[in-house]
Design a protein around this nucleic acid. Sequence first.
RNA 1: GCGAAAGUGGCGGAACUGGCAGACGCGCCGGACUUAGGAUCCGGUGGCCGAAAGGUCAUGGGGGUUCGAUUCCCCCCUUUCGCACCA
Length: 845
Amino acid sequence: MEYKPQQLEKKWQENWRASRTFEVVEDPAKPKFYCLEMFAYPSGHAHVGHVRNYMIGDVVARMKRMRGFNVLHPFGWDAFGLPAENAAIKSNTHPETWTLENIAHMKGQLQRLGISYAWEREIATCLPEYYRWNQWLFIRMFEKRLAYRRKSTVNWCPSCQTVLANEQVVDGACWRCGTPVTTRELEQWFFRITAYADELLKSIDGLPEWPEKVLTMQRNWIGKSEGARVRFALAPGPDFIEVFTTRIDTIYGATFVLLAPEHELVERLAEASADPSAFRKQVQRFRSQDRAGRLTGEVEKEGFDTGRTAINPFTGQNVPVWIANFVLGEYGTGAVMGVPAHDERDYEFARKYNLPIQVVVRPEGGEAADPAGMTAAVSNDGVLVNSGPYDGMTSDAARAALTDEARRRGIGEGTVQYRLKDWGISRQRYWGTPIPMLYCDTCGIVPVPDEDLPVVLPKVASFGGRGDSPLAQIPEFVNATCPKCGGPARRETDTMDTFVDSSWYFFRFCDPGNDSAAFEPSKVGYWGPVDFYSGGVEHAILHLIYSRFFCRVFRDLGMVHIDEPFTRLLTQGMVLKDGNVMSKSKGNVVDPDDMIEKYGADALRLYVTFVAPPEKEIEWTDAGLEGSFRFLARVWRLVDSVLETVAGGGIPSPAGMTLDDAERALRRKTHDTIRRVTQDLDPRVHLNTAISAMMELVNELYQFCDRPGSVLTVRPDSSVMTGVVERKETVAVVKEAVEALVLMLSPFAPHMTEELWERMGHTDGISAAAWPAYDPDVARAEQVVVPVQVNGKVRARLTVPAGTSEDTLQQLALADPQVQAHVAGKQVRKVVVVNGGKLISIVVS
RNA sequence: GCGAAAGUGGCGGAACUGGCAGACGCGCCGGACUUAGGAUCCGGUGGCCGAAAGGUCAUGGGGGUUCGAUUCCCCCCUUUCGCACCA
């Protein structure tokens, strides 16, 4: 029978659905395994990049199932978001229609791949059954003051017409569309992720199974720095400027103070200045400078003197107060002390504007620099000079002592500063979760009562972003009644950032149908945390830090008992075509359906897992896919040819039989392959080398069948073998090899192996079958070949019984005629037997 | 600029704690079977010298440690990624 993947794939997909093969329930008797791939944005069409991600997860899920785990492997849709809205505007449909159609199409594509998803657990975040719990959680967070509203300067994407979180600004541009981000002053809802900053940072050390790269990115993003806040009195009083510094040890060298153009004191200083309008003009110019440039240092450092001075609380000196465009209003206190001798930026600034430079730190064991002759700031720690009572202290000691003095004098204190800021979640767009809040003139901000949830997203006809939320244009939505006083109230018309949806969906999968709670704690208690999570590295800080935050919020609500949501993270590489990311606009998208039609889903699955390690980027090639197809056809022919003999349960195991050399060699190869494949899949996920090992076994089986004197032959037309196999040993050995092969191949090529498994006489289905057992006694060779090197070159090979002692090996090596030919007339300096007999190295002079 | 990772045949990639570099696949070459082969099976395939046996050079470049280095150390080059005025 020829290998025709299409029909049998259909057959088995139908069979899996009908018999609910991959649905699961909690079973305390079995070890659980929660295997998850990042759910999909329903953009319209799955491409082979998606396929690759889902295959990595599916191979792991199927393998774990066969190894006796109760495996939860669900899938769903990250279905809210701007593209739906934009597409709807363009094509004059509704975002919901667009989204649900896309989901239906993509679901079909994924099902044709034969992924072992528990489809009955499918969720879509745009449905009220789901987003209702976003609202529920929002209210809980509001109650715990983890959600709050304030006016602030926010990132604004002029193209998307909405606010962006800091995490969504990449190099000063919108993460979604690449438009340079501007700022706006808006009343916004925030999640207090900073309340967990320290915990999120510390527990990074508790994530040993995450890529180091992702952990580093998260550490940098949280950006903890320890330092001090110190107040410089403004002369004349009573105002003061509070600065944040990590280098209080250099404070005796602070010869000026710099304010961000956004600093709250700026307006008052302008007011009191000689020429307020010129002052304001300068400030305005700084504020309107390219934001990205200001943030990255591409915009030149500039500043101007406010004409005022402040008092350095340690030196007592009057120091000028300047406003500088490079000082960040959002970080620290929005004001810094200028220490030109020991900070490069301050140095540059002081040189430009001729501000005094005072050296207060010298290198340990070196001389203090001469301010006049300096060409650059010296920012290393050292020993203090010109610092009054602190002279001679190391920077470290001085930081402690100076902070202590500041605290005693009431002019400052040690603080910890984070770069991480609270997560702004308000979005002025339609296609998202309505924020369940009401504004009442008498009662203020009032949450929608739980029993009134969900606040359903009303159907509207127009959603053009115009800077305010489309929901604000619907009076029936906006006008509501205050649940507290019964008076008129206004509804919040912003929607939530879609990253809220994706920050807890993995919990919902544990109990997706629950209509009285986000999930039943006992169910997450059983399944959580996610044991294996795979997805793109682009979420290294966005989704992955928000999810870690939400997990802790649920924990503090008493609903989960874990700190971290994902035990192991694998960031898979992208699939490129012609060196580029696949995208519709580039016209280089490879549609999995086309590939399935040509070669079958199994070949596609095998290709994306074989071509490179999962973490690496790959370049799509049709030739590679064809190669994978060829391998599957080769396996098919092999099994098909020997099927009649190996089928049925009547043949005993080869263990205990008296085997000939070839049979023993094949058995050894079989068990060696089981060991290699098993290790490559678990705990490592080296899918490519696991497949290589199976290919070797297949090659070996072909050789075995073709060996001289064999009556087994794999026929090109895949007819049954010729002749009659009389040796039951031969049959038993081949059967063992073929069964192990088919089992281990099944996570990669489930359809074909199901078919073969059935034809081999099994009725239970291969996904219920047990992973083949590795027998180390079989894999161990009874004879080993030991290479003998003389001065680094292999000159002979000894064939000896396994376990020959090192002494004996040495003697045998030196007695070997070929070795002697190379040793003759020279002096043997050294003989080394490596790793108990893996190799012998002889050194002669 | 700072930091991290990586650099292996024509290509994708192997090599687990230093131990026969190039597994496995693609491509290419040859053979068998064929009316035919873009099917299949078998064989070959890093460079150079050689008819062959064999020799010799080879894991970005240069040093070092070692009996032995793709693997460990130092310097340099290149690429990719991350951070990028965070005081």
